[in-house]
């Protein structure tokens, strides 16, 4: 109950930021909310299904680059046209990468997903037509003005939260938890678990694509670092920091990391080390992440 009330307050506060029109805060909180969507989508795999994927940045990046390509080469800008195409691109990539990497399990799955992320990073980094390591500008952005983009991001966050909540309470979500706990048992009960895992992977990848799309729309800029393992690792840390296996955990983690990243950067160039220290502290002292703090009072 407390948790739900806190989430509503948080959503309203984020909505209120949209009315300030303040350039910095719109960009800053917009980025934080994109981080929330990105991390929640990964938690569907890590926290619920028990799949630690390092390919998540790939879907973020593919969708972002698709938006740049559509806008720069085809003059397609309107979200009505570009959003479905970018999401379909991310979903397609997730089908292919998921289909191949889910043949491996455990640490091998992690390695295969990492390999895909690296492959795409070098592909985009080394292709001059794609802007190389400098990245690309999105000539015309799908949302006119920062405030519109901010409200679009806010709506996306609310919708993604609601959809994931629904999915997790549906039989499908229960089956994912069953797979995490004991996949062999689920198979002998008749669940085609490879198919369940692939569907979860594709849902998560598509939502990561949504985050990438919103990111490119907000900043008007894409670059190959979005594909990198660093980005994949950071979103995994976000999930662990916030608390895996919950939806509000990744939200808390993403908000916290956005703040640490921004203010840490001003405070020290070694802010990465700061995040590292934070993760170590949380893993040691709060095994259920920041979400564990909310639960304790629930």
């Amino acid at each position: 109950m407390i948790r739900r009330a806190l989430l509503v307050v948080l959503a309203l506060a984020l909505l209120a930021v949209g009315f300030t029109g303040d350039r910095f805060w719109l960009q800053f909180m917009g980025k934080a909310m994109i981080g929330c969507i990105f991390a929640m989508s990964l938690d569907l795999l890590v926290g619920y299904t028990g799949l630690v994927s390092l390919a998540h940045a790939a879907f973020f990046g593919i969708s972002a680059y698709l938006l740049a390509g559509l806008s720069n080469h085809y003059g397609l800008v309107s979200p009505v046209a570009t959003l479905p195409i970018c999401l379909a691109g991310a979903a397609f990539a997730a089908v292919v990468i998921g289909w191949l990497s889910l043949r491996a399990t455990g640490v091998y799955f992690i390695m295969v997903t990492l390999a895909f992320t690296q492959m795409l990073y070098y592909l985009f980094n080394d292709a001059p037509g794609l802007g190389g390591s400098d990245g690309l500008y999105v000539n015309e952005r799908p949302f006119s003005g920062r405030t519109t983009a901010y409200f679009a991001i806010w709506s996306a966050l609310v919708i993604v939260y609601a959809v994931l909540l629904r999915v997790l309470h549906a039989p499908f979500g229960h089956a994912l938890v069953g797979i995490r706990v004991n996949e062999q048992r689920m198979r002998s009960l008749g669940f085609p678990t490879p198919r369940y895992k692939l569907v979860a992977f594709v849902i998560a990848g598509t939502l990561a694509g949504l985050a990438g799309y919103l990111d490119a729309a907000l900043y008007g800029f894409v670059n190959p670092a979005e594909f990198g393992w660093r980005q994949s690792g950071l979103v995994l840390m976000t999930v662990l920091l916030g608390g895996k296996g919950t939806l509000h955990g990744p939200i808390l983690g993403a908000l916290l990391l956005t703040f640490v990243e921004h203010y840490g950067e001003q405070f020290t160039v070694h802010w990465n080390a700061l995040i590292g220290a934070l993760v170590i502290a949380v893993v040691l002292f709060l095994p259920r992440g920041l979400a564990g703090l909310v639960h304790a009072r629930d």
């Binding site: 549906a170 499908f172 369940y196 569907v199």
Partner: peptide, 8 residues
């Protein structure tokens, strides 16, 4: 069948 959205 796999049900993504309906209530359990």
């Amino acid at each position: 069948p796999m049900r993504l959205l309906s209530r359990a």
